[in-house]
């Protein structure tokens, strides 16, 4: 465990909690892509099946359970409790265009052709593109609320910190996982345009981000 991974994990946790609290406090999920949240729930479910097969550390187990729990809680709030506020008309990204190719790729490019390993690979590939429905929704409506942009910022920061973590681990532990690294680079790149807007618009005092 190095400082980059720890802050990466905490940044990821912050993003998840920010979104959950935003929906809970405002009693509304307007502007949030339910599809992205379902994809993240799927990502955590398929990645953390190893909770049942191996124990790594108390930290590891606790965080996995929190991530999975929060992901399903978010999906529940969007599709059940605050369903009336869900902006389904603008959440029109075709998720099958992500899930099907990603599933195929996980079958073709993996470390080991075993069910758990393929599901883990699937989750890594899917995570890298799971935010696309949310970014698509923002580009469609033309704006995002401040809290939503904070959510996206921490979510992007998390993977960027993981990239530094992987460089660190390569130099100091000789550790590298090509699948995680390539998917992590793709994931971080998807947030770059958003990061730029977040910083520039944030300084201008505007509370909305307009990608157009």
């Amino acid at each position: 465990m190095n400082i980059f991974r720890l802050t990466g994990d905490l940044s990821h946790l912050a993003a998840i909690i920010i979104l959950l609290l935003k929906i809970w406090k405002t009693r509304s999920c307007a502007g949030i892509s339910g599809k992205s949240q379902v994809l993240f729930a799927l990502v955590f479910t398929t990645r953390y099946l190893d909770l049942l097969t191996s124990f790594i550390s108390l930290y590891n187990t606790t965080m996995k359970i929190i991530y999975i729990g929060c992901a399903y809680a978010t999906v529940y709030l969007i599709y059940m409790k605050f369903k009336a506020t869900y902006d389904g008309n603008h959440d029109t990204f075709r998720v099958e265009f992500l899930v099907v190719p990603v599933g195929g790729l996980a079958f073709l490019v993996n470390h080991d052709f075993s069910p758990l390993e393929i599901l883990w690979t699937f989750s890594i590939y899917l995570e890298s593109v799971a935010i696309l429905p949310q970014l698509f929704m923002i580009s469609k409506t033309g704006e995002a609320e401040t809290i939503t942009t904070h959510y996206l910022f921490f979510l992007g920061l998390y993977r960027a910190l993981y990239l530094i973590n992987w460089i660190w681990r390569f130099y100091f532990e000789g550790f590298f996982d090509m699948i995680a690294i390539v998917a992590g680079v793709v994931q971080t790149i998807l947030y770059c345009d958003f990061f730029y807007l977040y910083v520039t618009k944030g300084e201008s005092g505007s509370n909305k981000i307009n990608p157009a």
């Binding site: 994990d9 190893d50 790594i56 991530y67 470390h111 080991d112 075993s114 973590n165 995680a180």
Partner: peptide, 10 residues
């Protein structure tokens, strides 16, 4: 490299 890595990351 065709080997399963240790999944100690989240």
């Amino acid at each position: 490299c065709h080997r399963t890595t240790v999944k100690d990351e989240l």
